[in-house]
């Protein structure tokens, strides 16, 4: 695997432009807000500029959080798999986590109740359904 085959990792130029513009606008808006509130003592104008500044900063924070989210979501969770061991004679069932080497119809340990050889009857994973989702039937 060569290193050249990976997509570019840096921020795109459009992203940098948006960040710079939003940051510049926010700083300018906060400067005008401070000017209006302290020098001219115009509360309405000061509030408007402060609002623009807050909006700019919110946009910046949102974009940064989005970028961070993408990095965090790059993980693959291991699935939990269960093995059921069944005694065909007395019906005793034992549910445990899957172990390497397990397969369906494999002979397992002796039954704790009747001492008969047990057998792996099932191997599966359970998927929990997401709550609050209504589906058309």
């Amino acid at each position: 695997m060569s290193k050249a085959d990976s997509p570019s990792k840096g921020f795109s130029s459009i992203m940098i432009i948006i960040v710079i513009v939003a940051l510049g606008l926010s700083i300018a808006a906060f400067f005008f807000a401070a000017n209006a509130l302290i020098v001219t003592q115009d509360v309405i104008q000061g509030s408007y500029f402060a609002l623009i500044g807050i909006m700019g900063l919110t946009l910046l924070t949102y974009m940064l959080i989005q970028t961070r989210k993408r990095t965090l979501s790059l993980s693959i969770q291991a699935q939990k798999v269960a093995t059921t061991i069944l005694c065909q004679k007395c019906g005793f069932k034992n549910l445990r986590d899957f172990q390497r080497g397990d397969f369906i119809f494999k002979e397992a340990e002796g039954c704790p109740k009747c001492n008969e050889k047990m057998m792996i009857a099932s191997i599966y994973r359970e998927v929990k359904k997401k709550k609050g989702k209504k589906e058309l039937s």
């Binding site: 699935q79 798999v81 099932s122 191997i123 599966y124 994973r125 359970e126 998927v127």
Partner: peptide, 9 residues
């Protein structure tokens, strides 16, 4: 292609 679901089993 992933581990068999209980519903399928």
């Amino acid at each position: 292609v992933s581990t068999m679901r209980k519903e399928i089993f």
